[in-house]
């Protein structure tokens, strides 16, 4: 690991200002950042520890929703009685991710900002446009079983690994941030993660120094919430495909899919086809997909997982 300087910020504003310096990264749970630092993929010169900023509370909003502090741990968020009751999709998605130890450390904001688990990103001997812009993509023609089938580009076919983000996308969450100039803004989950295009190293809408302070959920929308994650072992593995579904009694609903794209994949136009069943929704959701021979199975898997989840939701309703 490269040497770095470490400091604890006393306030969100101080953290954002300090983070403007080149080579500075925030550290919260650290479960992804430290892993990448050990591998030489992340080489910050300065870490700003934001664990002591008081951003670890979840509170009700005047609109009837919830505001989740950026530093709320994944375990606490999944166990929050309000989340379990009104946003079950979020609890289920969180609990489907990582291990008990990791969820105790990992934070809400850090989960959103975690990097891809593409094996070519992790192997510093391989070309990777995300790790070293312009170096090429060794995944092309490589082993791509785990990688993306839609929203990808010629420069990068990595997926976003988060389960939590799939639920936040389906729930229309908004990301609250603080900029070094003191201004705050809200970014819709739909706009938070970037598609790779020719710049796969740019992964989010965040600007230099911008600090995530919280995530806001709108008022509960009811319905039956199901998160189904298909993976190579029954626990503690990343998704091949995951489907988050919120189904209303009238047959309308929301669908977000993980494991297939560089961001949580939701197509609102596909959701209007829910009364027609999984095949129609899946076809619209994956319109324009460019799978490789290795991961073409994900096209079928999305449809079948959605069919299974829809059947389960109708049983439970």
């Amino acid at each position: 690991m490269r040497a770095f300087n470490y400091s604890r910020a006393d306030s969100p504003a101080a953290a954002a200002q300090a983070a403007l310096a080149q080579g500075t990264r925030f550290i919260a749970g650290g479960t992804n950042l430290l892993d990448l630092m050990k591998l030489g993929i992340e080489t910050p010169q300065q870490l700003i520890d934001i664990n002591h900023l008081g951003l670890d509370q979840t509170e009700a909003t005047p609109e009837g929703g919830l505001r989740i502090g950026a530093l709320v741990r994944n375990t606490d968020l999944a166990a929050d009685p309000r989340v379990r009751k009104d946003y079950a999709l979020l609890s289920r998605a969180l609990l489907a991710g990582a291990s008990g130890q990791l969820r105790n450390m990992a934070t809400t904001a850090g989960n959103l900002l975690q990097r891809t688990r593409c094996p070519y990103f992790y192997d510093t001997n391989q070309a990777c446009n995300k790790r070293t812009p312009g170096s090429g993509c060794a995944a092309m023609g490589g082993v791509t079983r785990q990688l993306g089938i839609i929203g990808v580009s010629d420069a990068c076919i990595a997926t976003h690994p988060s389960d939590m983000a799939i639920a936040l996308r389906a729930l229309d969450a908004q990301i609250e941030t603080l900029n070094p100039d003191g201004n705050t803004r809200r970014i819709a989950m739909a706009d938070f993660h970037s598609l790779p295009g020719s710049t796969p190293h740019i992964e989010t809408a965040l600007t230099p120094g911008e600090l995530i302070t919280g995530v806001t959920l709108p008022a509960p929308i009811g319905g039956t919430h199901i998160y189904h994650k298909v993976r190579d072992r029954s626990s503690y593995a990343f998704a091949l495909v995951s489907v988050g579904l919120i189904l209303q009694k009238d047959g309308s609903g929301r669908v977000a899919v993980g494991g297939i794209a560089p961001k949580p994949w939701r197509v609102e136009a596909a959701e209007t086809l829910l009364p027609q069943g999984a095949k129609a929704v899946s076809a619209r959701l994956l319109d324009g997909a460019t799978p490789t021979p290795d991961n073409r199975f994900k096209v079928t898997l999305v449809e079948r997982t959605l069919a299974s989840v829809l059947a389960q939701a109708r049983d439970e309703a």
Binding site: N5, S7, R8, D10
Partner: peptide, 21 residues
């Protein structure tokens, strides 16, 4: 790196920055 402690970082914390400065 800045020449001065980033505002809001306590002096004690900033001393941790150490070696570079």
């Amino acid at each position: 790196m800045n020449d001065h402690p980033p505002s809001g970082l306590s002096r004690r914390r900033f001393l941790i920055l150490g070696a570079v400065t």
